[in-house]
């Protein structure tokens, strides 16, 4: 596993290449926006996307958990694409999730896509959770925060370097107040960090941890502006 280390509100954190956030001191892995069963969510409209996104998301997650073997896992909301999602998961996919929730101290934070996650798959359900000096929730409350870690926006950065355009998922952090995680799910697109909605949340200085092909790149705001497109 490749990751990059950074500090958030005084805590040492790892931004993993998979999009997971690792909090070594508390033995905690945080992932956001899994959007499980998104592929099958269009079926009722007659759109049949390849139904392999859930198993792919779960396999990647399994790799992360096996590697870091945490005590606690926090899913930052939108873990399921909709409230019916668990019904559409295949039995073997549900089994994997049940194993996860048995093995780890598992917390489902509720999101706008899954306001009421099913209890049948195990794990605790919460709208937000505070641990030490950090607060975990799905959507940032905006305005003044401190040590807040959230998801929801699926941040990604679009850059142009030496004439080559590239686009990748990223973490975005102002160092103390607000950290937003990239989406972990297979079929999840992203919102460019230069979008006014995200820019408004990071008016001061910030860093991004960009998920490249083989490593995580740490880019400060100043560098980003040079390569923006």
């Amino acid at each position: 596993m490749t990751s990059t280390e950074f500090e958030f509100n005084g805590e040492r954190m790892l931004a993993d290449l998979s999009g997971a956030l690792i909090w070594p001191e508390k033995n905690t892995v945080v992932v956001s926006d899994l959007h499980l069963a998104k592929g099958t969510s269009y079926a009722s409209r007659g759109v049949f996307l390849p139904p392999y996104d859930s198993i792919e998301t779960l396999s990647v997650l399994n790799g992360v958990l096996t590697h870091y073997s945490p005590n606690r896992v926090i899913c930052l909301g939108d873990s399921f694409h909709d409230n019916d999602a668990p019904k559409r998961l295949r039995p073997e996919e549900k089994d994997i999730i049940r194993q996860f929730t048995q093995l780890y101290d598992w917390i489902w934070i509720t999101g706008n896509h899954d306001p009421t996650p099913t209890p049948t798959l195990g794990g605790k359900i919460a709208s937000h959770i505070g641990i030490a000096n950090l607060m975990f929730r799905h959507i940032t409350i905006g305005g003044v925060t401190n040590g807040e870690i959230s998801g929801h926006f699926h941040p990604k950065a679009r850059l142009k370097i030496k004439g080559k355009k590239l686009s990748a998922r990223c973490f975005i952090s102002d160092g103390t107040d607000r950290l937003i995680l990239p989406a972990f799910g297979t079929y999840t697109g992203g919102l460019d960090i230069s979008h006014p909605t995200i820019e408004a949340l990071f008016s001061g200085n910030y860093m991004i941890f960009l998920l490249g092909q083989r490593k995580v790149f740490t880019l400060p705001k100043t560098v980003l502006k040079t390569y923006a497109r």
């Binding site: 998104k38 592929g39 996307l49 390849p50 996104d53 697109g189 919102l191 979008h195 909605t197």
Partner: peptide, 22 residues
Amino acid sequence: SKTGRQMTVSSDLIYDTLRRYD
């Protein structure tokens, strides 16, 4: 809307997944 973008599934993601599983 632009923000709606993240909700649609990009064909690249589908292509990669399909190539791997089917």
